[in-house]
């Protein structure tokens, strides 16, 4: 039949997690359609129409979708579900929020955070904080899938799909968006940055994260953190990398003052190159690091900054 990808966006910009989900969807069932649920998100629909391999964009323009509140999203997706044998969303906090509702209503299991499509009904997914990979086969019927986007390449922008505009499917009126407090940053997003530099409890304070900011600005990197650094209030919650935070797989991950607990490794061990700076040579992070520097970060980071300056960064 076909697969439906639910687009991730902020009302203005299509997120590249969508592009990656399109790649996964094309391996499950074709043609691929993309649902853009938003309010005044025309630019997003246009961007989605350019994704290679997408046949059609369905653009549901309604105030109920401005913040992708789960209950109206469930209704909308269910209203379209008949025509598809697979429905996929990126495993973002949005995807994780509305997709299980859709699966439950369709009376099918959801397959969470797939890493690989082995065949149209067989998928690989991480369990136990990524310390094991399960290969699971879905039963006959519709497939509801969330995608770990770090495991898929992004579809490029060489396509030209048609855009079908539809109205809303109704708001059950049991929930509503009140407000949000978003972290503002000029830097790339954590989950799509090519370089990530993360700080842990060893940073000692939020102030000290400025040391990492300086390096991040030079390398066009995103800044992340361990749970300990978030819990201590050094940085906001959306910085957290790990099993229960964000999963990242950049070209380069630099861990600074992070011990390397299982839960942290779960969120970064698929990075291409890992560098670690820690004053404890026994720290488990060194077991996964390609380049380890045993040093006091308060000395090493300014030195690193200076070296980069010398090299013209």
């Amino acid at each position: 039949m076909a697969s439906l990808v639910i687009a991730e966006h902020d009302g203005k910009v299509l997120k590249d997690t969508t592009n990656k989900t399109v790649t996964a969807a094309a391996q499950v069932s074709t043609p691929v359609h993309v649902l853009v649920a938003g309010s005044g998100a025309d630019a997003v629909a246009e961007a989605a129409a350019k994704l290679a391999g997408v046949e059609k964009v369905i653009y549901a323009d309604d105030p109920a979708y401005a913040k992708m509140v789960a209950e109206p999203m469930e209704k909308l997706i269910l209203s379209l579900a008949d025509k598809y044998d697979a429905i996929l969303a990126p495993a973002t906090t949005n995807g994780k929020n509305y997709m299980p509702r859709v699966a439950a209503k369709l009376d099918v299991p959801q397959i969470s955070e797939i890493l690989k499509v082995d065949s149209p009904d067989t998928f690989e997914r991480p369990i136990y904080a990524g310390n094991a990979i399960a290969t699971v086969q879905a039963p006959a019927g519709k497939k509801v899938i969330t995608v770990r986007t770090t495991a898929f390449k992004a579809a490029d922008a060489t396509g030209s799909a048609s855009i079908e505009k539809i109205g809303g499917a109704g708001d059950p009126g049991i929930s509503k968006f009140v407000s949000e407090e978003l972290s503002k940053s000029e830097r790339p997003e954590l989950t799509s940055a090519k370089i990530v530099i993360s700080g842990g409890r060893g940073m000692q304070s939020g102030e000290n994260f400025h040391l990492l900011d300086k390096i991040a600005d030079k390398l066009h990197a995103a800044v992340g953190a361990s749970r300990a650094a978030v819990d201590a209030g050094f940085v906001p919650n959306d910085y957290q990398v790990g099993q229960t935070g964000k999963v990242v797989a950049p070209e380069l991950y630099i861990a600074v003052g992070i011990s390397g607990a299982i839960q942290h490794l779960a969120g970064m061990k698929d990075s291409k190159i890992i560098a670690a700076i820690n004053k404890d040579e026994e720290a488990p992070i060194f077991q996964v690091a390609d380049y380890g520097l045993v040093a006091d970060l308060f000395k090493a980071i300014p030195e690193m900054d200076e070296e980069l300056t010398k090299l013209g960064y």
Binding site: P109, G130, A132, I133, T135, Q137, I274, V288, Y291, G292
Partner: peptide, 20 residues
């Protein structure tokens, strides 16, 4: 409803080198 066909180990990372 899902059939687990197998459970395997993820690819292992090797510890690299220490720099000074």
């Amino acid at each position: 409803r899902l059939k687990t066909l197998k459970v395997t180990e993820p690819p292992k990372r090797q510890a690299g080198i220490k720099v000074k």
